[in-house]
């Protein structure tokens, strides 16, 4: 078990090192996410109460869209250099390959969310940082879920011609519970109620946020176990 973790760590580190040298995926993903945030600012009326209600959705839609792009690209890189076969032939368990990929993609999605969340906070004047540690936990769990399920299907779609269209077709229906839980958790952390003067002050609903965080945890765990179990039989060449 320990060896799988180190091997997965090596795969993830390899991916991240390639990424740190070219910075292709992270720059394009983050720019795409930033563009989405700019588009939201035209698409939604800038009223304080409306924005507070819409901000969680914006965050998670951004993660969904840019996440799909990042996952697709991360696996395209293996296809272009025909290194997926090398990875699968490597004398390590395939679980380690999958786990490593999932880790590196989690890092990418997380990085993009950490770029976009401050942008949303800036453009919409949203109090995203008042509960920063808990929000970070929600985003980490969400990114991990997107990356795990995304890696399984991006790996199986590697040889398919229309994979760019099919990846979201497969992922979004399966990921809806994750998006709903993430949005609800974020919304619970952003809850505000009027104070004596009628001014909105934040009043986080911690029990609700905690419920959805647990939901995300169980969701990630269930699909991680399922992916471990199924990955090998899905990617046989």
């Amino acid at each position: 078990m320990a060896s799988i973790v180190t091997q997965a760590g090596r795969i993830a580190w390899k991916d991240l090192r390639i990424e740190l040298r070219s910075r292709e995926i992270i720059y394009t993903m983050a720019f795409f996410g930033a563009l989405l945030v700019v588009i939201y600012s035209f698409a939604f009326p800038a009223k304080a109460d409306l924005v507070r209600a819409a901000v969680p959705g914006m965050l998670w839609v951004t993660m969904a869209f840019s996440g799909t792009i990042g996952i697709g690209r991360a696996f395209d890189r293996e296809r272009e250099n025909d290194t997926m076969r090398a990875l699968l032939l490597a004398p390590i368990p395939r679980l380690a390959v999958f786990f490593g990929k999932a880790i590196s993609i989690t890092a990418l999605v997380l990085a993009v969310s950490l770029v976009c969340a401050p942008l949303i906070a800036l453009f919409f004047n949203a109090p995203l940082f008042e509960e920063a540690p808990m929000l970070l936990l929600v985003i980490v769990l969400g990114s991990a879920g997107i990356a795990v399920i995304g890696s399984v299907f991006a790996a199986t779609l590697l040889k398919v011609r229309s994979r760019d269209v099919l990846l979201p077709v497969i992922l979004y229906p399966l990921l809806v519970p994750l998006f709903v839980a993430g949005t609800n958790a974020t919304a619970a952390l952003l809850t505000a109620s009027p104070n004596i003067d009628g001014v909105l002050v934040s009043d986080p609903n911690f029990p609700a946020a905690w419920y959805w965080i647990q939901f995300l945890g169980f969701y990630d765990l269930a699909f991680l176990v399922l992916s471990f179990w199924i990955f090998e039989s899905l990617v046989i060449e």
């Binding site: 299907f153 040889k159 398919v160 099919l166 399966l174 269930a222 699909f223 899905l234």
Partner: peptide, 22 residues
């Protein structure tokens, strides 16, 4: 997926059915 995923359609679709059930 069945329709458009080409040669590996059966595996991808099977994965989707299992993930959907879980």
């Amino acid at each position: 997926v069945r329709q458009f995923a080409g040669a590996s359609a059966d595996r991808v679709a099977a994965g989707m059915a299992i993930f959907g059930m879980v």
